[in-house]
Each structure stands twice: as C-alpha cells, then as structure tokens.
Design a protein around this nucleic acid. Structure first.
Lengths: 237, 237, 237, 237
DNA sequence: GTGGTCTAGACCACA
DNA sequence: GTGGTCTAGACCACT
C-alpha cells in the first residue's frame, strides 16, 4: 500500500541538479561553474552541502576542481564521466522502448501545440539552435572534441524551445525531467544520426514556423522514432 | 541558472503520502489505516515521524484518531477536509487550463495505447470499476454520504487501470502524480458531470475493449474536455 | 636539506588519537566512547571534525555507530579492524628488529629507573595490572573473546605504570608513542607467549618492588627479546 | 581521557623547520638559505606560506633578508637570535634534569651500538667532525665570532654521526628531535665546557673506533653528565 | 538523549 | 579571489 519514503539529503539534490545541468549541456566541457559561494547562494544551501555535492561529482568524473585565483569548478569532457554509458548497458530493451514511447507522447504534443502558439521570439530561439546545429554538423569530421557536446547542447535547446513555445509548464517539466535523467549522453549516437537528424530538425522547425500542427506532430514522431532505432542498434547490438 | 532546492522533512513526506492515498480514495471515509507500527514499517520511518504526520492530518481534518482496543486511524468524510478547495480558489484560469491540457496529453496516449495492448485481465479491472460507478450513480439521490467518495475512488481506478494497460511506467507515473497532486477533490464537481461522465466512461471502455485506438483517444479527449469545462464553471464563475 | 612538511588536518589527528586509544586498550571492544559532543569538547574540535574522524574509524572497522537514545560509538572486536595486521605483513625483518631494539633501549631504562624511584602507589598500580593479567591467563582456554583484548590492555598498563614510575615524561612519551603506533595488535602473539610472558612480568615486578635496578633492567631486556622472537616467528615464517 | 589536539598552521611548521636547521648549525651565520622558490618547492608549500615563515624568522632575528641580485636569506649571528635563552629561563630544575636523563638513555644506546656497528665510513664522518672541533678549539681565544657556531655545528654532527652508525632510525629520530627542540643554544655553555668536552669527544671516538661498546657507553654517559652540570650551573645559579 | 544533517561565518592556503 | 578547512550552534530523526 505504502512505499518507503525517500529521505532527501540536501547534498544529493544539489548533486543531481548540477549533474543534470552538465548532462543537458548548460555547461559545456571546459566551462567553469560559478564560484562555490555564488553557487551555494543560488541553490539556497550552505557551502558545506554544496562542497559535498561537488566532491561526489568530482569523483564521478564530471568536475575538475582547481585551486587558486584562476581556479574553479571546471566541467570535464564527457569521456571522463562515469556511470553514464553504463546506465544503459544492461537496460532491458522493453524499458528503453517504453522511455522513448513516453518521450514521443510528450514531444508529439509539444510539436503540435508549439505550431499553434509559437511567437516570433520562440521561432528566433529555435532558429538559433537549429543554425548552430547545422554549422556544427559541418565540423563533424574535424577532431575538435567540443563538436559533439556543443551539438548535443544545441539539440537540447532546440527541443526545449519547442516545449517552451507551448506555454505549458507541465509539458516543459516532463520533457526537462526526461532529458535530465534519461537522455543518453553517448557521443556515438550523435555521429550516427547526424545527417538525418539535422534534416528532420529543419523540417520540424519549418512545420512549426508554418503553424502546421499536424505536420509538426508527425515530423516529431518520426524524428524520435529514428533516434530510438539508433539508440537501440547502438546499445543492443 | 540554478534554483533554490527544496528540502522536505520526513514527516511532511509521510503526511503527503497518506494524504494522497486518502484523496485518491485508496482509503474511503470510515476506513481505518493500518496500525501505526505497520504503517511506520511500510513507510520506512520511525513512529516519531509517523505520529507527527498523523497529528497534522488530524488537524487538517483527514483523520480521526481513536484510542483503545477498537481504535485506530479512521479516515474522515471529505466534508471535514480542510484546505483542499482552497487549493483552487485563487488559481488563475490559465494555470487550470494548462493542467487539463497536460492531463489530456497523457490520457489521450493512455487511451490509445490501452486500446492496443489491454489484456483480458485489464478489461476485467476496468469493467469492475465501471460497474461500480454505474451502480453508485443510481444511489446518487440518496443521502448516503459514501456515494461520492466511492464514486471518486472508482473513477480513479478506472483511469488508472487504463494507464496500467499501456505497460508504460512513465505514463503511469505521470498520471498518478497528476491525480495525487492536482486532482480536484470537490464533490460538487462530481454532482454536475455525473450523467455525462458515466456515459463517456462506458464509451471509453467499449472503445478500448474493441481495440479501437482512435476512438478511445477521441473519447478520452472529449471526456477530459467536459471535465475541464465543469471544473472551470464551478471554480471561476 | 628540507623535507616536505606534513599538513595536519584536524580530523586526521583526531582519528589518530582515537585509534591509538582503542589500540592501546583504553577502550575495550564493546565499550562506548563518550558521546560526540563530549568527545569533541575534550579534543577541542568541532563536532564536524570529530564526525569525519569517526566516519573514517567506522570504515576502518574500529567503531560501530548506533543511533538512538541508547546508541553511541561502540568499539568493535579486534578481528574487525582493518589494516593493522597488514601493517606488518610486508614489513622487512630489519625494520622490525630495529623497532624492538628501540623499545628495548627505552624500556630497559624505564625498568632501571622505576626500580630506583617507584612509590608505594606505583607498585599498587603495577600489581593491579599484573594480577589482572594472571587472572585472565587462567581463562585463556575459554572462548570468551574479551580475554585477549583485556590481557593486552592490562599488559599495556603494566608497562606504562613502570614508565610512569620513572617520573620522566620523555621516556613516558617515547613509550606511549611506540605502543600507539607500532605495537602489534595481533591476538595470536598473545596466545603464544602467554605463559612465559606472565612469569616474566612477575619477575619484573618483583625486581622493581625490591628496588633491584640491574635485575629489573635485565629482566625487561629478556622480556622484550622473547616478545621480539615471537613476533618475528609469527610474522616472518 | 582525551586531550585537546594542537593544530599548526603551515607557516608555523615551515618556520619551525627552518629555525631548527639554523639552530642545529646546518646553516651557519652568514650562510644563505636556498632561494625562495627552491625552498618552497622542497618544503612543499606555496611561496605565500614560506614568506610568512621568513618574515617571522626575520623578526625573531634569525634571518636577514637582502634584496637584489646578490641578495637572499642570510642567517644571522646567534647573538641576534631572540627568545632562545628565554626558553630556559623559567624552566624548573627537575625538568632540565629529566631532559638530560632522556638524552642519556638515547645516547648511551647510540654509543654502545655505534661501537658495535660503525663502518669505516661512519668513522670517517666522526673523525672529520672531531677534527673540526679540535681545530676550532685552538681559535677560541680569537674574536672570530664564527668559532662558536662552527663548533656547535661540528658537535652536532659528531653526535649525529654516532646515532647514524647505529642504523636504527628510531634512535636517530629521537636524538634529532631532542636536539632540534631542546638543545640549549647558548654560546656561553660552549665556552665553559670546551676543554673537557673535546677530550671526551676524542675518548668517545676512540672507544667507538675500537669497538669497545662498554667504554663508549660509559664515556657518553659521563660526557652528557658534564654537559648537564654545566647547563645547570649556568642556568640555575 | 543519542547520532545525523545543515547553516553562517571565519580564516587559511593557493595561484 | 578561488577552493580548503574549521567552528559554533541549531534542528531533525531514531530508539
């Protein structure tokens, strides 16, 4: 009837928040987080608690802490993160499909509603993310190891800007929560879907810009379906 | 960039859990909760914490604590609950609409998927809830004050059994979370939608039983739309 | 010319202090340390620092922390301690001999000086420790797992009471430091030297009681030599 | 049961290290310490910390900081040192005796063991220090103010080379620690024991060279006894 | 009345 | 002007 409650430790919540921000690309590898004192203030916790979270994130390979006047909390390359790829290693195929199904439900709705409600400003934000993705796509053959993280951040911004355009906080939150906790952060996924993905992104944008809700919805569903197939072929071969 | 984190005390979480169980009709007025020790065990907390939660729920009118051999934690009538109707008093119309919109997205999906995946057992659970609602409907003119709570519990079970039939935990959780925290527990809502509501419920059931996904989805959307109009006319007149 | 300085972290010093007290048998397995607040006060540190030390000692198997009114910091059985026996596993034979040589220098001096300076009170303390050892010796065949720890604590008290009787703080400190950091805490040592050890202890006591400095010194040297041979045969077979 | 722990700041430890090196004559008056960067490196601290220590040592009269290309950290004459003689001013006679007693225990052992274990190389080091002392002794009537410091450094080297010859790190450390923290650095002591002291030093050397452990031990004990009487007559007249 | 967690503020060490 | 450490005090949760 009742399940054991989950006691919330401040430092765990803080850790989860920062981890999500990093995984979502709000801070890219090489970026510095705000100084401890500022971060603690923003998160509404003491430095003690924040530092516990930072220590864990450092151990998990997300952060690199440097001392001194020019030091700070530096975000590591994705390749140093521990436990992310593993999250999906043993995952059952059914679970993965169920997660993509849920995402499809949410994003089909955001695409449809965004097509009906997007403002000029929404479109500008989407276009900016889209163009960033396209320009990064051209650099994909270089060995700049920031291409993948930057692309993933732009991808996230594109999808979130669509959700934002719905003006529905529930959909927004559901999507953010999905990406933060379940989004697969493996660069290889990117490398394989790249071309298709970007064409789909542009189609999606154009449908939303044109206010064509049905088309936007269909395009989004197709886009996520491709993403799903890719993830599955990558993780369950 | 970062928002203040929200810490919750153990007894608040426990209180919220029990309140949700009551609001969702898992315990009906007059029912007794399990004994303290059992409850504390299930929730994984000490009796100190549980008792604090119970004290608050008693003050909020949800519970009536009776001592003695035949005592226990008795659930009160809805009419004794405090602060629930208030939740919606000052709510902005836009917020209410956004919430219903979110519910529509989720439940349109559950209806569609349930129509495709329901097992015989799923249908049996749905039918049971449906028949209970229909039989309660006939008693709605009596002054039996258990009719409304029982109807609401059956209503909840009906919707949840549909979500259950999708075999998608994400949709399931989203729905449960929605009902637990945002579902309007005002009996008057029930009194006004009752006739339509029940017809819709049966239509919905039949579409799912027939495996007609499109129809199930349309019916669900229509059903929630009626519910929304009702809530708005009641709360924002 | 200069060596890197060793930065002293408060919690490490505290940890070392408590660990030494346990290893020296000032707290026996099953004993409770004073409550955190008291301990922190005595050690002149904040609870934060003390708790870090306790956490480490818990991880190292020295302590078992229990919550609640009757909880506290309980000392574990020696068999749960980690890293103690290991300290000597790979140790070079020369190092071990050098350590025993150093101890011989210090304790030969304490025995000699104690024989010259012991008061009645000193003798009473020695006799008490001696008698405790003798009474424990009789229980050595039982399976009471407190016999070894208690014997070791009494052994330590006996030797320290001799050092105390010299009224020389330098010798006292050197001995205490030696036992705290280098004393071998392996119960098996005890089992093998038992009979001889106790006879020697009594001889030593009688020489000191009689004020026979030469005999006391010779007996102590012989006693430590036996102990050394035992340790070596045990650890370097 | 437990005593307050003593925390030390990095710059205090560094200061103490450098002070000990100077007091032990590892750097003689007029010598320059290594450059700041080298020193900071060797000590494993930042220059900030090192400079704080240097500032204190300058204030205490140990160092004279000279800027410029030919500048550096120059060690002052003993006569400029502050606070050393004071260390013993209020000291109780008993404490002084106890310290000499402890030193006697340690050095009697080093003399005995050195006589048994000294190598040719050990003897060469001892002889070098001995001869330096003898040659300085002849200059003691001149007003060369380097005679005393140089003699004291040679004296320290002589005693340490004996300890070194024992191959026992424990004895070595105990002696070094003793001299660094408790050795009386007052030049006047030197002026009064000089003649005897040097004869004793030579006797000691010869006993060790001859491998006569008993004689070496007796000579050392006598040597320290003279030193003790001298110190006491000087400080407690 | 114990251990468990968090806070606000201080000072240190580093670059 | 950053991260690193420590303190004093408060309140929570457990038994």
């Amino acid at each position: 009837m009742f399940n054991p409650i989950q006691l919330s430790l401040a430092h765990e919540i803080v850790e989860e928040n920062i981890r999500a921000a990093i995984r979502l690309g709000r801070f890219l590898p090489g970026d510095k987080l705000p100084p401890e004192r500022t971060l603690a203030d923003q998160l509404g916790v003491s430095r003690t608690v924040l530092r516990q979270a930072i220590k864990n994130l450092e151990n998990a390979g997300y952060l690199n802490v440097k001392r001194g006047a020019k030091g700070g909390l530096v975000v590591n390359l994705q390749s140093d993160w521990k436990g992310d790829a593993d999250d999906y290693k043993g995952k059952r195929l059914d679970d993965l499909n169920a997660q993509y199904e849920f995402r499809t439900v949410i994003e089909a709705a955001t695409a449809r509603l965004a097509a009906q409600r997007r403002t000029k400003n929404d479109l500008a934000v989407m276009r900016s993310a889209l163009e960033r993705m396209e320009s990064l796509m051209e650099k994909r053959q270089t060995d700049d190891n920031m291409v993948v993280p930057k692309f993933m951040a732009a991808d996230r911004e594109f999808h979130f800007s669509i959700a934002e355009a719905t003006r529905n906080p529930g959909l927004n939150d559901a999507l953010e929560n999905y990406w933060a906790t379940r989004f697969i952060v493996i660069g290889q996924v990117f490398r394989r879907v790249e071309d298709q993905a970007n064409d789909e992104h542009r189609d999606l944008f154009e449908a939303i810009e044109a206010g064509n809700a049905d088309l936007a919805e269909r395009t989004m569903i197709h886009h996520i379906e491709l993403s799903r197939e890719n993830a599955i072929s990558l993780l369950h071969r």
